[in-house]
Structure formats: structure tokens, C-alpha cells
């Protein structure tokens, strides 16, 4: 066989192999994607919430209120759909999503890597990670600047663990455990400690309650809260992300957070 003919034949082999791969991939995609269904099957955005977690969601005068309720309503507006709140316990959140009793879950949850086969997680809407809080007139920019200084935190908390991790990395600093994050923040405000390490929400709420205390907050760890949707409903996940992105871009999200937790 002539060389040109052999090359032509080999090209056909490659094309055939490519076709096989394309067909197999398409079949796999088809098998794993659900048939099209309405964006909101119930005609409303059914939002699973956990109303035991103030200030994110809680009962007040027989009504569920909180940052996450306002967020749900804002997303309902973005989707042009009425919002139906479904109160759930923390343990039942994902099962409600699985049996499609709710369309989305907004309940101060973080992405769980063990659930990503069944659940899509949105962009983060809030970061509840640890923050280093120090007085504005003696700001401490980062954990590695603590050497030789003192740090207040709540005993047995995530901040306690993180403080001890840093003790192994940098020159010693004095650890000052207190019973609660609020008392640790008192220590920083009253000058009994150079800084406090607490969760972002505790820091924001404390700063709002003590607005006469100028302070600096520096993120140390990130704990992003996200919205969960069913992985069988990718269109809704995309719409939720689009709505969140829009709310971030136009400042709506910051306003909601500031309304419930105080300013950044």
C-alpha cells in the first residue's frame, strides 16, 4: 500500500476512535443529567431554613426572621417568585432537599465535600471564619504579629485551637482564655489583652453593641456560608448563583449583612 494511502487510512482510524470517545461521553452525560423540569416546581421558591440560629434565622412573634430570611426574600425577588419558608432542624436539612420538599437550603451551612454528588453549593454569601480583633489605635494586622503580645479567646472554641496552632509557628505570645467570645472581646476592648480571636459574627455583633470602640478586624480563617440546591437541578443552582452575584455587585448583600450584623 502506498504511504499516502496508509496515512489516509490511519487518519480514518483516529477519526473513528474520536467518534467513539464523543459518543461515549455524550451517553454518560445523558445518563447523569435529569430531564428538564421547571425551575421552581411548586411555583414558589421553597427555602429550607433552621430558625434556631439567630441572627441568621429565628422565631420572633411567631414569625421567622433573620439575615437568611431577608436573603431568601431577595433571591425570590431576583427569581420573580414568591418565597415559602420551610422550617427544619439542622439534621433534616439535606433530606428535605433530597426529597424535593424544598428547592434550596439557606441555614448557615458550609460546603460538605462528602455531599457534592447530591448537592450543589452556591457562591458564599457570608464568611463566619475567625477574625483577629484589635483596637484601632494599636492594630495587629496578622497572627504572626502577635509574638510577645497577648491574645484573648473563648476556651475550647475553634479560636482556642487556632491560637495553639500559631503558638507552634511563631515566637510565644500570652494566651488568655475566657468563658465566651464576648468576654474575650471585652478583654481586647478594655486593654486586658492586645487582641481577641473570635468568630466573625461574634465580632460584628460585639462591634455593633460597642460602636464607641474603634477596632480593626482581620480575617484569620474562612468559613463561607453557602446555599445548597439539589445536584439534580443544575438550572436552579445557576439561577441562585446569578442572583447572589447580582446582589454582591449591587451592594444588596452587604446591606443585608450590615442590617443584621453591623458593618464590616
Amino acid at each position: 500500500m502506498a504511504v499516502a494511502a496508509r496515512l489516509k487510512l490511519r487518519r480514518w482510524h483516529w477519526i473513528a476512535a474520536g467518534l467513539i470517545v464523543v459518543v461515549v461521553v455524550m451517553l454518560l452525560l445523558r445518563a447523569t443529567s435529569a430531564p428538564d423540569k421547571p425551575l421552581l416546581p411548586a411555583g414558589a421558591l421553597r427555602v429550607g431554613v433552621d430558625p434556631s440560629n439567630p441572627p441568621f434565622a429565628f422565631f420572633e412573634d411567631d414569625q421567622i426572621r433573620g439575615l437568611e430570611i431577608d436573603l431568601a426574600n431577595a433571591l425570590g425577588d431576583a427569581l420573580d417568585a414568591p418565597v415559602q419558608l420551610v422550617p427544619l432542624g439542622f439534621d433534616g436539612l439535606y433530606d428535605a432537599l433530597k426529597v424535593e420538599a424544598v428547592d434550596i437550603v439557606i441555614a448557615a451551612i458550609t460546603a460538605d465535600p462528602l455531599r457534592t454528588a447530591d448537592v450543589d453549593y452556591s457562591l458564599p454569601y457570608y464568611d463566619d471564619g475567625l477574625v483577629l480583633v484589635s483596637p484601632a489605635d494599636h492594630p495587629i494586622a496578622a497572627m504572626d504579629a502577635l509574638a510577645g503580645l497577648s491574645l484573648a479567646y473563648a476556651f475550647g472554641s475553634e479560636a482556642d485551637s487556632e491560637a495553639h496552632r500559631w503558638l507552634r509557628r511563631i515566637q510565644p505570645f500570652t494566651t488568655q482564655p475566657y468563658e465566651t467570645p464576648q468576654i474575650a472581646l471585652d478583654a481586647a476592648r478594655l486593654g486586658a489583652a492586645d487582641a481577641a480571636l473570635v468568630g466573625a459574627t461574634d465580632a460584628r455583633l460585639y462591634a455593633r453593641a460597642h460602636d464607641d470602640w474603634p477596632n480593626v478586624r482581620q480575617a484569620v480563617m474562612h468559613t463561607p456560608f453557602v446555599i445548597a440546591t439539589s445536584a439534580r437541578h443544575g438550572r436552579l443552582a445557576a439561577a441562585i448563583n446569578e442572583g447572589l452575584q447580582q446582589m454582591q455587585n449591587d451592594g444588596t448583600l452587604d446591606l443585608l449583612i450590615a442590617r443584621w450584623l453591623g458593618g464590616a
Binding site: F155, P177, Y178, E179, I183, D186, A187, L190, A192, A193
Partner: peptide, 8 residues
């Protein structure tokens, strides 16, 4: 004591 007394 596991933790310090509140300051102030």
C-alpha cells in the same frame, strides 16, 4: 479555673 475572670 479553666478560664480567666472577666476583665474590668
Amino acid at each position: 479555673a479553666l478560664w480567666l475572670s472577666p476583665p474590668g
